[in-house]
Amino acid sequence: MRLYFNKTIATLRLLDRGRLHMHVLQKLALRTPRNATTLRQDSEYDTVRGVWLLPEGSLVADDPDEERTSKKNDVETGEDLKGQ
């Protein structure tokens, strides 16, 4: 129990030390779970037409239920491909 307590304190101290050396830009950056942009399982990419299609043949990009027409509507990763 005492060993566990000591380990926890040591970990917290390490975390504190990390934060102590953190720039304000890093401190204030919003932290969120990372999730990959995905599309509906039943959508299919047409290489020649350059579009993702739903089973009924309409565009995924024009589907009002599909909000991921842009990363702005998904996880905020900045402007297109800025994070790449």
């Binding site: 830009l25 890093q26 950056a29 919003l30 990763t77």
Partner: peptide, 24 residues
Amino acid sequence: ALKSIDTVYLTSGSFQQFGYTQLV
């Protein structure tokens, strides 16, 4: 208005951090 001079997009394990303009 505190801003980065380039996009702040940081990743660590299963988390990401994104920098926004902050009034400080």
